[in-house]
Design a protein around this nucleic acid. Structure first.
Lengths: 114, 114
DNA sequence: CCGTCATGCAACTCCCTGGTTGCTTTTTTA
DNA sequence: TAAAAAAGCAACCAGGGAGTTGCATGACGG
């Protein structure tokens, strides 16, 4: 995989994370998993406005983005946060903004030259 | 504004940024503005697969999330990246993942105790 | 002044997403 | 072992979002 392909892959993954976190109920699920730790579907549903089925769907979307993963325990399914992709996405955002900030700095230097 | 309200506001803003960047064409617009600097609508359209009107709509969405802003120059409209919100969102993501990582660490310590 | 280049405005289509309801299956547990 | 708890499966619906086309407007250059 060339460096350029690697960069594209990173951005693509970051995009799926963004799209996953762009939904309000999903973001609140992530926040709750972040502070409350691993929880079952019904536990997550109890503090939510929407149906259990809706919660399940959202968790599946989050899993698709690699943000959470589940393990079965008896009759329940425990969902847990997966921080790696979140950190990757955070870094991607950081780079995009810094790249532009540096461009701005270069521009300032250029403008102030005369 | 209470600290809790402030936190909620931050998350809400971050969410709108995520939702804005969740779209492929929008994310590529942001990437191009990041590396290529300020550009007009038609400039941005020329390197895009979609129509000028589509690009315009996407830029409006990005502006709504506070990620870009525009200035008029004659008959054209120049769009520029706005890094503040991007950095805020990046930090929010970082915190969510770190909060969970620390919880994991505490758990490990607890488990290894016996 | 006139063509043309950059953009604005509006209507319309298509389909994906978030959400629901209803029923079934699998474990617990009393 | 029967009731209840947790979750899975499937169908359905309404709304919004991405994209398009068509036409109007405004600014520049010769």
């Amino acid at each position: 995989m060339s460096p350029r392909d690697a960069a594209t892959a990173t951005v693509t993954q970051a995009r799926s994370v963004f799209s996953a976190l762009g939904d309000e109920t999903r973001l609140s699920l992530v926040a709750r998993l972040s502070s409350g730790g691993p929880q079952s579907i019904s536990q997550l549903t109890s503090r939510s406005r929407v149906t259990r089925q809706a919660v399940t769907k959202h968790l599946d979307v989050l899993a698709g983005a690699g943000v959470v993963h589940d393990t079965r325990r008896g009759r329940e399914r425990i969902w847990e946060l997966d921080s790696t992709r979140l950190l990757d996405a955070s870094r991607a955002l950081d780079q995009i903004s810094r790249r532009w900030d540096e461009a701005l700095d270069r521009l300032k230097i250029f403008v102030e030259r005369d």
